[in-house]
Structure formats: structure tokens, C-alpha cells
């Protein structure tokens, strides 16, 4: 299953204004792994994610998706393998109806009409959004928009899902539903997030970024318990690992 492999080797990137966003990032993610990418604001999470979907090309070093080296020429192949869910669903949903939006990817893949239809139906069913198929995306709630954005990517049948802050701006119930949904996926998942509790639940492995470098890479349970890693990177232990606020106050 080498096509599910994601490998970054010594990736460097600086923006045109001179900001050095990636300084030598290397990792290797294998088939079926679920990896959280965490770090403070501006640590380089979004930049890293954009490299994986080919929205940015590395300024130095290499990114390999499966057997394919990411270059301008291989963009089409890489984007077929990697499904990218953007942070703001309004960026992702640009078609007049939910149905047309979910069908956008499969149609561009050149699939025949009946296959497009079955993929759209299946993707909407998976995220539980079949009932909004005919609605315009801007009439949906935040949680519905997020679910539909995921469906737009699922319909392309990617092997790797890359998500930027999937639980941001969701109410607690919508967040819970999303976590359960993501838990059912067997894809290789790479999730950039500040929601460390979600990382605890969904991701076996965590990569901590700090100022464009990897500060730590290992099992989530170990990393998120280790204050000596978290504190310098502007992070805190997930709430689920902190003591109960009421009991610990009583002890004081």
C-alpha cells in the first residue's frame, strides 16, 4: 500500500515577504496512520498542510505522496490521492448547490455520469447530509457546512485526508459528531488542530511544530502528557488530561 505513504524530507519554505515558514521538516507517515499536527499560531501547520496537497511547492527538500514526488507536473496525480479539507468551509464550497459542489471533484476526474451520481450520494450519506443536497451552501449551519466540505473531498475517493482545523467554530454537539465521523474513516489522516482533546481521541501519533521545525514527533499519549515538550511550543495539556477543575480546587 505504498500509495498511502506521505514523506517529507528536509522541507524548506519561505513566503515572498521573507518569512521563513518551514526550516527543514522531515517525517514519514505510513498507510492508515492518523496524525495530529499541533503547534502555536504561526508555527507552520497550515504551510505544511498546503505542501501536502500541492497548493505550495517546497522551496527546498522533497515531498513524496506514495510513489509520486510532488512537482508542478505531478500535481494532478497528487491531488487525486490527497483530499484537502480547508479550515473555512466558505472557501471550500463554491458551487450553487451542495450536490453540485460534491459532484465538482468527480466530474473533473472525468468519471461517467452514473458513477458521479453514485459517488455524490455515497459521500453525502457518509457524512449524513443527503437531506441538504439541493440547498445552496450559504444556507447551511456551520456544522452542516463542515460535513459537506468533507463530503466534497470524500467523493473524489482519496487515500489520504488532510484537514485544517476540522473542529474549529463548531458547537460541542457538532464537534462530537464530527469526531465520531472521522473516527469511522480508514484513510490515512493528517489533521492540523488546536483541539488537543480531539487529537487524543483520533490520532495515534502527534507531530509538534514550533517556528517551522519539528519539536517532537511520537505517540500522542506520550507527547500530550509531557509538559516539557508542550510548554515551550505554546501548548497546554489537553483538558482530558488535566485534573478535574472542581476536585483540584477543593484540594487546594
Amino acid at each position: 500500500m505504498s500509495h498511502h505513504l506521505v514523506e517529507a524530507k528536509d522541507v524548506h519554505y519561505s513566503y515572498s515577504d521573507g518569512t521563513q515558514a518551514m526550516c527543514g521538516v522531515s517525517f514519514r507517515i505510513t498507510h492508515g496512520e492518523s496524525v495530529a499536527v499541533v503547534g502555536a499560531n504561526g508555527a507552520g501547520k497550515s504551510t505544511l498542510l498546503q505542501h501536502l496537497s500541492g497548493c505550495l511547492l517546497p522551496g527546498g527538500g522533497t515531498v513524496r505522496i506514495g510513489d509520486t514526488l510532488l512537482t508542478r507536473k505531478t500535481l494532478a496525480i497528487v491531488r487525486r490521492t490527497v483530499g484537502m479539507v480547508f479550515q473555512d468551509p466558505d472557501d471550500q464550497l463554491f458551487m450553487p448547490t451542495v450536490w453540485a459542489d460534491v459532484a465538482f471533484g468527480p466530474i473533473n476526474l472525468g468519471l461517467p455520469a452514473d458513477q458521479v451520481r453514485s459517488r455524490v450520494e455515497h459521500a453525502l450519506e457518509t457524512v449524513g447530509m443527503s437531506h441538504v443536497a439541493g440547498r445552496p451552501p450559504y444556507r447551511l449551519s456551520g456544522g452542516e457546512k463542515r460535513a459537506v466540505s468533507i463530503a466534497t473531498v470524500l467523493s473524489m475517493d482519496p487515500s489520504i485526508l488532510v484537514m485544517d482545523e476540522p473542529t474549529s467554530n463548531l458547537d460541542p454537539r457538532a464537534r462530537r459528531r464530527l469526531i465520531e465521523l472521522l473516527g469511522t474513516f480508514t484513510h490515512t489522516k493528517i489533521i492540523a488542530t488546536h483541539d488537543l482533546d480531539m487529537a487524543m481521541e483520533l490520532c495515534g501519533r502527534t507531530i509538534v511544530l514550533s517556528q517551522g521545525r519539528i519539536a517532537a514527533d511520537g505517540p500522542t499519549a506520550d507527547i500530550l502528557r509531557d509538559e516539557s515538550i508542550l510548554a515551550p511550543c505554546g501548548l497546554e495539556k489537553p483538558l482530558s488530561l488535566q485534573g478535574c477543575p472542581i476536585c483540584s480546587r477543593q484540594k487546594r
Partner: peptide, 22 residues
């Protein structure tokens, strides 16, 4: 900024300048 992000999202799903329908 938004236009750039939308364009990136469109490109990620194989946009090549034409919006097709089935």
C-alpha cells in the same frame, strides 16, 4: 486573500478553468 484560498480549494479538486455538470 479569500479569492486565493478559493482558487486553491478549486485546484485541489481538479479545476481547470471550466465548471462542468453532468
Amino acid at each position: 486573500d479569500r479569492a486565493q484560498r478559493v482558487h486553491a480549494a478549486m485546484c485541489c479538486r481538479g479545476f481547470d478553468g471550466h465548471v462542468r455538470t453532468i
